[in-house]
Simulated assay, not measured.
Amino acid sequence: MTKTSVTLLALAAALALSACGKQDAPHAAAEGEADAHAASSSAGLPAGNAENGRKLANEGINGGASCVSCHGADGNAPIIETYPKIGGQYADYIAHSLQAYRGGTRAGGNADIMASQAKPLTDQQIADIAAYFGGVQGKLRDLHNLD
């Protein structure tokens, strides 16, 4: 399989997952309830806690690098252009990606780096990180309104 084919497959998978993600008009959770998009996960994870995720993203775990050390503040300022912006990304997409990196089933690009970072994460930590990055204001661009 060529590098272009792998890239196109990865793009198709990302687009398919994004179609299943956020709602156009998110609703507020009732007081005392978990955030609505963090409470349901197509990744089969527990409800995520965005505040715990923020701490993990900024501090790392067990001496490992933090998410923001490569993806930048709020996941919106990667240190090199090949690292993606993850701030504002669909929480389910982040959760699925981290699970795949942890399980060694996601390949290509920076998979080796991410696999080593995701390996020690628990399901709860993945859910928390996904809830955090899914809830921050993102600087992602998509193909909407392009001529």
Results as ranks from 00 to 15, higher is better:
139 K>I: 06
33 E>P: 00
64 G>N: 15
45 L>C: 08
38 A>K: 00
143 L>T: 14
22 K>Y: 08
71 H>K: 04
49 N>A: 08
47 A>Q: 04
4 T>I: 11
105 T>M: 05
3 K>S: 13
88 G>I: 02
77 A>K: 14
136 V>Y: 06
74 D>N: 15
73 A>D: 14
83 Y>C: 01
63 G>N: 12
100 A>N: 05
53 G>C: 05
143 L>S: 13
62 N>P: 00
142 D>V: 06
86 I>N: 00
62 N>G: 14
24 D>V: 10
17 L>S: 11
110 N>H: 14
28 A>V: 14
93 Y>I: 05
31 E>H: 11
71 H>R: 04
103 G>V: 05
10 A>P: 01
95 A>V: 01
48 G>W: 00
8 L>F: 12
111 A>S: 15
54 R>E: 14
79 I>D: 12
58 N>H: 11
100 A>P: 00
81 E>V: 10
140 L>A: 09
39 A>I: 06
138 G>K: 03
23 Q>L: 11
83 Y>M: 14
29 A>F: 07
1 M>D: 10
81 E>G: 10
135 G>S: 15
37 H>T: 11
126 I>F: 05
35 D>I: 04
16 A>D: 09
28 A>F: 08
66 S>D: 08
4 T>W: 02
87 G>H: 00
145 N>Y: 13
65 A>T: 11
145 N>F: 13
52 N>S: 15
41 S>N: 09
84 P>K: 03
39 A>C: 05
60 G>A: 07
